[in-house]
């Protein structure tokens, strides 16, 4: 375990990083939190707005719902992918990993505009559907929640596949065989043995994707509709358009606290620290 046998020499190696974090991260975050409480009308005035004004409650609710949907979609797509990844030979592994990671490494803007090209009413997908006569007009696939879901699921997929694959690779491959030899059908062997044993990966993936989705800005801004904005867009709006920084700071603090709480829950109750490499 790193950190336990640390002496002052190796401690000194941490100083540049710590200084960097303290000056450019910890201090601004502290200032941000302080800003959110500094108002002549009362320290909690902005938080009252966040949690009592139906408009903002709806934005928070929408953000939570969308993050949940992205997490679930990633699980449905990612579980079979991770399973196959774990079973494949070296070539198959490389192909699957590349398919999952190349979009992940691609510039966010490029990828988002790429989705617009594919999904817009005159785009490739709608054009194809019209061509084969499945539809007459166009299915609205972008500049709405559908577009955001598609774009975010794609970028979040690695955060689901990698922890799942890590758990699956550590699983004793004879366990499903043992279950079969003891009378379990393939489905029963999956439900009673494989799924429960890969649950830590499922929970890690769900939490990770959910947490990261809460604060997403670029994809919802480009692929989402003008009416159903999310928390990060609301923060941006308050900073750049209405210049209400204390309120933006309150929103940011809510997001920060939610993320830290989720991280703590995952670390404390689901032993996810091991999967994320912090333990």
């Amino acid at each position: 375990m790193p950190g336990k046998s640390m002496n002052w020499r190796s401690g000194a190696l941490l100083l540049p990083g710590l200084a960097f974090l303290a000056i450019l991260f910890a201090w601004p975050v502290a200032r941000l939190v302080a800003t959110s409480f500094s108002d002549s009308a009362g320290a909690f005035i902005h938080y009252q707005r966040v949690f009592l004004d139906p408009i903002y409650v709806r934005v928070i609710g929408r953000t939570l719902l969308l993050s949940t949907q992205v997490a679930v979609l990633c699980l449905l797509l990612g579980y079979p992918l991770a399973y196959q990844l774990n079973r494949s030979g070296p070539l198959g592994k490389a192909v699957i990993l590349l398919c999952v990671l190349i979009p992940f490494w691609t510039n966010l803007l490029v990828r988002s505009y790429g989705w617009i090209v594919l999904l817009n009413p005159q785009g490739i997908i709608n054009g194809l559907l019209r061509e084969i006569g499945l539809i007459d007009g166009a299915i609205p696939l972008v500049h709405n929640t559908t577009g955001v879901l598609i774009g975010m699921t794609q970028i979040m997929l690695p955060y689901m596949v990698l922890p799942l694959a890590a758990v699956m690779s550590r699983l004793d491959p004879t366990l499903p065989s043992a279950a079969r030899s003891l009378g379990a059908s393939p489905l029963a062997a999956f439900v009673r043995v494989y799924l429960p044993l890969t649950m830590p990966g499922v929970l890690a993936g769900l939490l990770l994707v959910f947490m990261l989705s809460l604060g997403f800005f670029v994809v919802p801004a480009l692929l989402g509709g003008p009416r159903d904005i999310l928390l990060a867009q609301l923060i941006e709006f308050n900073i750049n358009s209405t210049l209400n920084w204390p309120f933006a700071a309150a929103l940011s603090t809510v997001l920060l606290v939610a993320t830290i709480t989720l991280y703590w829950i995952g670390d404390r109750f689901f032993d996810l620290g091991r999967l994320w490499g912090t333990r």
């Binding site: 366990l175 043992a178 279950a179 059908s185 043995v193 044993l197």
Partner: peptide, 28 residues
């Protein structure tokens, strides 16, 4: 298929189910 053969198998590494206790392993 293996589940229809009704044979007992003891594996080299035992292949016990780590998420179940002794009773539930044997009851499986």
């Amino acid at each position: 298929p293996p589940e229809k053969r009704g044979l007992g198998v003891v594996f080299q590494n035992y292949a016990l189910f780590p998420h179940l206790d002794v009773f539930d392993n044997i009851a499986f």
